[in-house]
Design a protein around this nucleic acid. Structure first.
Lengths: 343, 343
DNA sequence: TTGTAAGCGTTATCAA
DNA sequence: TTGATAACGCTTACAA
C-alpha cells in the first residue's frame, strides 16, 4: 500500500506480457511494436508508475547522485556555492547529497564513507582547515573516482580543482588602497595553512612591492579563526604597539575587516580619512555598514556551477581528469565602497 | 577495479563460507561462532569492505535518506535551518538530499517526483510563495508518507508543521520599545499577504493595546519587497510628513530596519536616544552595525533540528503523525542591542 | 552453527 | 517482436 509502488512487474501482469517487454517499451527501445508501447505507457500512466531509482542504481552501479562536503552551510559564500551546485545538478538530472564537516576531519572522513556506501557518482569537496593529510582523497582518485575540489585546493598531483583568484583579489585590494594614498597598509591574514590565505597575502606583498613600497613583516598578522573579536584585538595591538602605525587594513575576510573598523573607531580614527579598510568576500552586510565596507567579491555561484559542471563531465566521461592539470581560476571583483575612498 | 568494491560474496569466497554467514557475522547476529565472527571481520577489514547502501535500500525499501525542499539556499535563515537539519540527520545516520525550488511550484513538484524515485524516507518542506494548492502533498500524506512542513504552514488537515512564534516576537519587540520610553512607535510591515507579516503586525498592535497606547494606523506601513531602499523612503516619508512623528521603528525584517536607521541618520536623529529601532530575524550583520541593531532572533537552527527530529521519529514510527495536531511553535528571542536602549 | 534460495526492481543477454 | 533468465549486493525464512 505504499506510494508510487507500481512496478514494472505490475504493468506486465496487467497486460499479460513480460517485464522485459515493459522495460523496453517504456524506454522506447527499437524492436517493440507501437501497439504494445502505447498500451504499456497507458497502463504505466494509470498505475502512476515511477521508476525505482534505487533498483536502477544497483543494476547500473550509478546513482545519479553527487556528494557535497562543505565546512559549513551557514556561511554566505558557501551557501552561494551550494546554490550554484544545486542548480546545475538539478538541470542535469542529478541529486545532491549534502554534508557539512564543521571543519572536522573526522566528519569529513565519515561523510566520505557514508556517501561511498551510497554509491555516489562523485564528490565535490571543500576540505576542512585542519585537513593536512589528503590520503582519504588520493586513495579514491587513484581508482579514478571523480572528485572536484573547490575553494580550497589540495596539494595533490592530478587533483581537479576550482578556485578563486585570491592572489589577484588581494593584489587589487591593496593596489586600490595604495592609490588612495595609504602608506602603512597592514594585512589581517587568514589561517596560514590555507592556500587561499597564502595567495591573498602574496597579492598583498606583490602589490606593495610593485608600487615600490616596503613589506613590513610586523604588519602581517594571522587571524586563524577569522572572527570579529579576534581581528579587533589583533588590530588594536597593531595600532597601539607597532613601531610605525598602520593607516589601512586589508583583511582576508569581511568579519575581520569589521574587527579592524571597530579598533579604528575605538581609537577615534576616522574611516576612511585616517584609516582605510578593505575586506574579502563581499558578504551581504558590507553595504549595510557605516561607512559601507569595500570588499573583494568572490563568484560563489559561479564556483558552484563550474565545479558541478566539471564533476558531471568527469562522471559522464565527457572530459578526462588528466586533461585538467591546473586549477581553474575564477575572477574576483573589487567592490569599492566608502571604507577605502578618501574624499 | 572500483572502489570499496569488496562485497559480502568476496569475503565469503575468501573464507569458504556462505554469504549469509558473512552477513550475520558482520551484524553480530546470535548463533554465530565467535571464531567465524572474528575471521569474517578480519577479512572485511583487510578487503576494506563497505556495505552497499543501495542494495540495502532495495532490500528494505528504506533509503535512510530524507529530502529537503527549500525556496532558496542563499538566505541566512534558511541556511541556518539546513544546518540544523543536516546536524540531526547526520547524527542519526541519515543522508540529506537538498533541492531548492526558487519559489517555483513546478520545481517543487518535480523535486518531489525525483526524490520519490529515489525511495526517500520522508520530506522536510518549506513550500514556495506561489503554492496555493497542496494536492501534491496531501496525496502523499494520504498514503501515510512522512512529511514535516517548516516555516510556512499549509492549510491542510493533519499536516505536521514547525513554525516560529511571529506574534510573540512582534509583541516583545514593541513592548521593549515601550518600556524604553518610546511613545510613537511605527511599524514597517512585511508583505501583508504573508501569514508571518500578519502575525508580527498583530503582535505590534496587541503590545500597544496592552500597554494602554493607541494604535495609529498612519504608523503602520507596508514594505512589500523588504529592501533597505524601500524602507528608507517609507521611513523618510513618515518622519517628514506624518502628523505626529514616530520616535521608534519596529521593522518586520532587518534590512528594513537598516533603512529606518539610515533615514534617522539622514535627519540627524541620534539612535537610540532620539530614535529607537528593532528589526526582525537577527541576521548576521545586526551585531556589526553601529549602533548594533536590536532584533528578534528566529531559531533557525532549532527549527531545522526540531523538524528533522520530528520527521525521523515519524519515519521510525516512534511517534504517530495523527498525534501532532497543532503546529509546533518555536520561541523567538529578542536580542537587545544598542539601537533600542536609552542610556 | 551454518548453508540454500528467494526476493527487492531493473535491465542485458540470449533464445525463440 | 517478445520472453526467460541471470545478475546487481544484501537479508532472511527455512532447512540442514
Amino acid at each position: 500500500m505504499k506510494i508510487g509502488q507500481a512496478t514494472i512487474k505490475d504493468i506486465a501482469k496487467e497486460l499479460g506480457v513480460s517485464s522485459s517487454t515493459v522495460s523496453r517499451a517504456l524506454k522506447d527501445y527499437p524492436g517493440i511494436s507501437e501497439e504494445t508501447k502505447r498500451k504499456v505507457k497507458e497502463v504505466a500512466e494509470r498505475l502512476n508508475y515511477r521508476p525505482n531509482a534505487v533498483a536502477l542504481s544497483l543494476r547500473k552501479s550509478r546513482s545519479f547522485t553527487i556528494g557535497v562536503i562543505i565546512p559549513e552551510v551557514v556561511h554566505f559564500f558557501f551557501s552561494t556555492v551550494i546554490s550554484g551546485i544545486e542548480e546545475v545538478a538539478q538541470a542535469r538530472g542529478y541529486n545532491v547529497i549534502l554534508t557539512q564537516s564543521n571543519e572536522s576531519v573526522d566528519r569529513e572522513k565519515s561523510s566520505i564513507e557514508a556517501m561511498l556506501s551510497n554509491q555516489i557518482d562523485g564528490f565535490l569537496v571543500c576540505f576542512t582547515k585542519e585537513t593536512k593529510d589528503f590520503d582519504h582523497f588520493s586513495k579514491l582518485m587513484d581508482f579514478g573516482f571523480p572528485i572536484v575540489f573547490f575553494d580550497r585546493i589540495p596539494k595533490l598531483e592530478g587533483a581537479v580543482s576550482v578556485a578563486v583568484d585570491d592572489y589577484k583579489g588581494g593584489y587589487e585590494a591593496v593596489s586600490h588602497l595604495i592609490e588612495q594614498g595609504f602608506q602603512n597598509i597592514a594585512h589581517l591574514s587568514g589561517p596560514k595553512s590555507l592556500k587561499i590565505s597564502q595567495n591573498r597575502e602574496r597579492g598583498y606583498r606583490d602589490a606593495l612591492y610593485n608600487h615600490g613600497m616596503q613589506v613590513n613583516e610586523e604588519f602581517i598578522r594571522e587571524c586563524p579563526t577569522g572572527t570579529t573579536e579576534e581581528a579587533f584585538s589583533v588590530a588594536m595591538d597593531l595600532l597601539e604597539n607597532s613601531k610605525s602605525k598602520p593607516d589601512a587594513f586589508f583583511a582576508s575576510n569581511d568579519m575581520a575587516a569589521v574587527g579592524a573598523m571597530r579598533a579604528a573607531r575605538k581609537l577615534g580614527l576616522r574611516i576612511p580619512d585616517e584609516m582605510g579598510i578593505v575586506g574579502f568576500s563581499n558578504w551581504q552586510f558590507c553595504s549595510m555598514l557605516e561607512p559601507s565596507l569595500s570588499s573583494v567579491a568572490q563568484p560563489g555561484f559561479k564556483m558552484g556551477s563550474e565545479s558541478a559542471t566539471l564533476l558531471l563531465d568527469l562522471i559522464e566521461k565527457k572530459i578526462e581528469g588528466s586533461s585538467i592539470k591546473d586549477p581553474i581560476i575564477l575572477n574576483t571583483e573589487l567592490l569599492v565602497r566608502n571604507s577605502s575612498v578618501r574624499r
